[in-house]
Amino acid sequence: MRKTQAYHFNTEVWSVARVGVFHWKKWPDSDAVILYFSGNGDTHLLTYLGYLILEELRKSPKTQPELIQVLTALIKNPDEVLPFPTEMVKAHLFHLKKIGLVVS
């Protein structure tokens, strides 16, 4: 059962909600990002990772492995020895789906 779920998550294609435009407010010294989504008029406080995920999915729909590959390249730090936070991406995707910003 667990294997089936993992397989499903890896092949599931994620994309941004179809109707609406993302308007961002960022500050140079802050990890928090504000999003105004014109699709439903809601405003959200997101992390910078949430911002990157939405921007990448806006460019084109992606599976989770594809998304992680792009994000790894984007936020690659030569001094970073820790593995990329895959679980965090997964959690973000579920959260963004729950608040109606992405679909799968």
Binding site: K25, W27, S30, A32, V33, I34, T43, L45
Partner: peptide
């Protein structure tokens, strides 16, 4: 407060 926190609280 961070700008992001203040933004949401103000909304």
């Amino acid at each position: 407060l961070t700008k992001g926190e203040a933004f949401i609280k103000l909304c």
